[in-house]
């Protein structure tokens, strides 16, 4: 592997300064499961890595109705958090299916978002939960809705030397259920297609519906036509079939090493339908 410097700042300000001085030749590293692998594959060249692991508080998880995740919250900790498993099942499921234990023990949710793979497994759950992303830089802090965060494969709203410091998920209301599903070649592979759903039910009627799919477009998508179809209705077999068809039309997948566009289009419909059915089961009204 090519040589690089490795800096370990203890504060955000130190990190911004270090990254600023590198003038585009540096990258942040959190768990390193994307960035170090890409360096080893020679898909990426840097003069230096600036580690976020030593910055206090970035890994914290807190819950006071709303859920706050630090930018460097570990999948390991998210997976073991009982409140997340109970109230935010789609996120719990996405994280516990992601990669493998050794990767989850070091990889972070902020790294998953900033890497911005169209297949990033945390994106669909956070999209259906209307998460807000906090970015901090030398000039201050800004909050952006996750819906506007992704700009294309590998591209986000983050402007160096900004750091993704937090993710906030609004508190759930009664009747909320959510679920995540993923289709891959083998269990630890990245998704061919993934999908998440969230519903807020009032008895049999769906008050609010959020659907999202990944690896089927340049960025993780909200399936808004499907959402419109579902809101205000009872979720029955016919509606689920309609959702599957609509979802297949809403996505714009490509053919690559993992799958074909046709297959992805079809599976996006199937996963959207099933995720919606599962979210309904998790809803506790």
């Amino acid at each position: 592997m090519k040589r690089f410097e490795y800096y370990q700042p203890r504060t955000l300000d130190e990190a911004f300064e270090r990254m600023g001085n590198l003038k585009g030749a540096g990258k942040y590293v959190a768990g390193g499961t994307d960035v170090i692998v890409r360096l080893k594959q020679r898909a990426l060249k840097v003069d230096a890595l600036v580690s976020l692991r030593g910055i206090a508080g970035l890994g914290d998880i807190a819950h006071n109705g709303a859920l706050s995740l630090g930018g460097c919250a570990l999948f390991r900790d998210i997976e073991r958090n009982e409140v997340i498993a109970r109230d935010f099942p789609a996120l719990h499921q996405a994280v516990s299916m992601l990669a493998n234990p050794q990767v989850r023990n070091v990889a972070t949710i902020g790294g998953n978002l900033c890497n911005a793979a169209p297949s990033a497994d945390c994106a669909p759950p956070l999209l259906v939960m209307d998460a807000v992303i906090t970015l901090e830089g030398p000039r201050g802090k800004r909050d952006v809705p996750i819906e506007s965060f992704f700009k294309g494969p590998g591209a986000t709203l983050v402007e160096a030397p900004e750091i993704l410091t937090g993710i906030t998920i609004p508190a759930i209301t009664p009747g909320t259920g959510s679920a995540f599903l993923k289709m891959g070649r083998v269990s630890q592979d990245i998704a061919k297609v993934n999908a998440a759903a969230l519903v807020v039910m009032d008895g049999e009627v769906c008050l609010k519906c959020r659907l999202s799919a990944g690896a089927v477009a340049p960025v993780p998508l909200r399936l808004k036509a499907c959402e419109k179809l579902v809101e205000g209705r009872r979720i029955d077999h016919d509606l689920l079939e309609e959702v599957a068809l609509t979802a297949s039309r809403e996505v714009s997948p490509i053919t690559d090493v993992r799958s074909t566009d046709d297959y992805r289009r079809h599976i996006a419909g199937v996963l959207a339908k099933r995720a919606l059915g599962d979210a309904l089961k998790f809803s506790t009204f």
Binding site: G32, K40, S51
Partner: peptide
């Protein structure tokens, strides 16, 4: 593999299994 896929390089850091092939030594 040297890329975090196979686990042949697994060691424990503070008791937790990690892939040492992608674990920066400074950490």
């Amino acid at each position: 593999c040297g890329q975090g896929e196979c686990g042949a390089c697994t060691v424990l850091v503070d008791g937790i299994p990690v892939d040492s092939c992608i674990y920066p030594s400074f950490e």
